[in-house]
């Protein structure tokens, strides 16, 4: 009898433990006093913007903040403005978004938000005239310089390089070109043959390339100032026989770009630390509630207190065939 009772007790105890293990879920109230931010960036969940969002989520967990991420189509700035206008009705502690110096309405709304005491951090693309609190992103000038230095390292003798871009009105591309140009000029043996500005599509790019190869027989390098151009060239690959002997440096780490490096068609690409942008943006806001810097000193991301400057530059890295599979920025 004792054995039976002991068995029953043991059976019940095991069942109880199993029940607790499988079904118990502690219920706790979420504290409502977390700082709330809004992040209004491009919509894609993968690739570059996916990394930005991943950085934001990491920072939220670390700093106990709550960032609502809204997406808009890359070309749909009207939607970006609409989402920013909603900020007026919300008791937010900060806003993260992408700048564009050419869109007046965007800059106005950013200014309005700042004047309401809500700090705005711009990532990826700056728009200093918007009155934002801080810019966090790549130092495009230095990125341009890095690309130029790589081309100069790979070519002995004179360098004749063409630049492919999608719009010099885009400040980040202009910045890159500025840095690129400065580095080439310093070397004294390089010249930019032409800066081709294309639509962001493959066909206009192919046309531009054909035109360049026909026109400039001495061309021995190409610099792609942004990601989509690099991607299209990478996708075209060996079909562009005329480019086979050229040194081609691109931008960002889209899959087609990396594969082209592995195949040897592209020589290198410059990648940006997108995750750091998202992370640093949240970190900045959590340490500067309702604060506006107004400063514009450039600084790299190793600075202990980036809040002392208006810009926070994230790391860039050159990816070649040597480190294409191991390059992840720590």
């Amino acid at each position: 009898m004792k054995k039976s009772v002991a068995l029953l007790i043991g059976f019940s105890f095991v069942l109880l433990i199993l029940s607790l293990y499988f079904f118990y879920e502690p219920v706790s109230r979420i504290p409502g006093d977390r700082p709330r931010y809004a992040c209004i960036v491009c919509a894609p969940e993968e690739g570059y913007w996916g990394e930005v969002k991943a950085g934001i989520r990491l920072a939220d967990e670390e700093f106990q903040t709550s960032t609502r991420i809204s997406g808009f189509s890359i070309l749909d700035t009207a939607r970006q403005v609409q989402l920013l206008q909603e900020v007026e009705y919300l008791n937010l502690d900060g806003v993260i978004t992408v700048g564009d110096p050419d869109i007046l309405k965007l800059n106005e709304i950013i200014g309005q938000i700042e004047s309401d005491g809500i700090p705005v951090v711009l990532i990826d693309t700056d728009s200093a005239q918007s009155g934002r609190s801080c810019y966090i992103g790549t130092d495009n000038y230095e990125a341009g310089r890095l690309a130029a230095e790589e081309i100069l390292d790979r070519i002995d003798g004179d360098v004749h390089v063409a630049v492919l871009a999608t719009g010099m009105e885009k400040s980040y591309q202009a910045e890159r070109l500025r840095g690129f140009q400065a580095a080439l000029e310093e070397s004294g043996r390089a010249e930019i043959l032409e800066v081709c500005v294309n639509e962001q599509d493959k066909f206009s790019l192919m046309e531009s390339i054909a035109c360049l190869t026909e026109t400039y027989a001495s061309m021995n390098a190409i610099f792609c100032a942004e990601a989509s151009t690099t991607q299209y060239i990478g996708l075209a690959g060996n079909s562009l026989a005329s480019l086979r002997d050229l040194v081609i440096i691109g931008f960002d780490d889209l899959d087609a770009t990396l594969q082209a490096i592995r195949n040897g068609f592209l020589d290198a690409t410059i990648i940006q630390d997108a995750q750091a942008m998202g992370y640093e943006a949240v970190r900045y806001l959590s340490s500067h509630p309702g604060h506006r810097t107004g400063q514009t000193e450039t600084q790299n991301s190793n600075t202990p207190d980036p809040a002392s400057a208006g810009n926070l530059y994230t790391k860039i890295q050159l990816v070649t065939a040597d480190n294409v599979d191991t390059y992840k920025i720590p």
Partner: peptide
């Protein structure tokens, strides 16, 4: 004991 065990289970 058997009945107790059966009933208990």
């Amino acid at each position: 004991a058997f009945y107790v065990l059966l009933f208990g289970v």
